[in-house]
Design a protein around this nucleic acid. Structure first.
Lengths: 247, 247
DNA sequence: GCGAGTGGTTGATATTTGTCAACCTTAAGT
DNA sequence: ACTTAAGGTTGACAAATATCAACCACTCGC
């Protein structure tokens, strides 16, 4: 595997500062896999045999029950997912499928568990990562329970804007159907809500978003928003959608 | 503080097996507080100065945005809450209020952070605890997104039953308004749903629940239930409601 | 024993959200 | 260039859920 890649992975908060030997052992045990698009790489309920690292492409984490299914997160390079199941040695609670041609690094869970036991810095990193994931999900759950669809959408767009430095314009990072599912609504509902937001300070045209009246949009989101900030728990990958692109 | 109490706390997964000295330092730094009912002990947005241990009584974790509020969990002795904010040195994402006269042990976050840094077993415990909390919340979120109110209730009741060993009869552990809010619905809606479940294998009379036709109730819950089991992530206190009492 | 407050239930009604079907647009494949 | 498939949008409609108001039952404090 190319050295540059290892560098990128090592720079992840989860791996940064851990023993050189720990890291090397993990990488050596890992499988490097190329996957075509639309392939299920993890099935919920299965034993968590691997920690996954997304190296190229894009992966959707989702959950399903008889028919229905819900997007839980979309993961882009370079980040890991399902650390929790891995350290708990418990079944996956989410499935994962590629959205594009992707490249994944599969690190056997046994090795991960050995590494947390052996390298206390790695354990601390894992702890921080999991705390961040947890907090990300707390925010998400609060969103689902405290806001209706329009408010959730407004809050989401404001958050996206803030994450790229309060730029008023940006591009949606993923397909709208994924955003809709992630936010617990139907695509139709999202579509209509997007349109109606024109009256509340935000214009959406295709993938392009322009916040025309931030104050108004914030009022709609039912702010008091420590709910989504001011601390983004940035490392909370694996429980959210990707960053948008400014423009 | 009585010795017996320390024993109970020490037996929590978070503290079990950690260095005697680590534990003693934490306990020595802690404040032992008696609180009357209906007192807010933690406000979301505030810096996370303390890890809280519920020693007696009952505490509700909740979140609120302009008017509305949502129950996130109910914590009973002996367990801890808001570990995540504490180790991240980040603001609380939830508020906490006593439901009854309660006794709390407040362990300063600085000491907790020092302890995880110094005692690698404690760090591993914290990691496991946070992984459990995360997984608990994942289940909860899946529930919210994939099931409607009746299904959520059916699933909840089945879960409660399973947690006490598949007893068909039990007593609801908390007030119905809390259950309703936790599950993201209004009390009125919960009340009606409870009544309607009589036709689907479950009878609710006041606090008493009797599952009369488990198979039928499971069918309604839209099972395939790895969703709530078979691994309860038991240590996931702080993200769920208390256990019911069998009867 | 009595009044007040809280939680719970019920009914009528409004709002929100989902469903279904049609259609449009775009990108990919032949 | 044509066809196909997928994502997205729109409208009409249905279902789920919330809201509001009244009422009941129970507990607590006097």
């Amino acid at each position: 595997m190319p050295h540059a890649l290892h560098q990128d992975i090592r720079r992840l908060p989860l791996f940064s500062g851990i023993g050189e030997e720990t890291f090397r052992d993990l990488m050596r045990a890992a499988y490097d896999q190329q996957m075509p698009p639309h392939v299920t790489v993890v099935s919920e309920g299965a034993p968590a045999d691997f920690l996954h690292v997304v190296v190229e492409g894009m992966v959707e984490l989702f959950a399903s029950t008889n028919g229905r299914d819900a997007t839980m997160a979309v993961v882009r390079p370079v980040s890991t997912f399902i650390l929790a199941a891995c350290v708990r040695d418990a079944p996956y609670l989410m499935s994962a499928r590629t959205l594009q041609r992707s490249r994944l690094l599969l690190v056997p869970s046994v090795n991960v568990r050995a590494a947390v036991a052996a390298d206390s810095r790695f354990a601390l990193n894992a702890m921080q990562d999991l705390a961040g994931c947890y907090r990300g999900l707390v925010r998400h759950t609060k969103n689902l329970k405290l806001r209706n669809t329009r408010e959730r959408i407004a809050a989401y767009l404001l958050r996206q804007s803030r994450l790229i430095g309060d730029a008023p314009g940006f591009t949606l990072p993923v397909e709208k159907r994924l955003i809709a599912s992630y936010m617990g609504m139907t695509p139709e509902n999202l579509s209509r809500a997007f349109k109606s937001l024109a009256a509340d300070g935000c214009k959406i045209d295709g993938q392009r978003v322009i916040i025309t009246d931030r104050a108004r949009l914030e009022a709609l989101a039912g702010l008091s928003l420590l709910l989504d900030g001011p601390d983004p728990d940035a490392s909370a990958a694996g429980v959210s959608l990707p960053l948008p692109e400014a423009s």
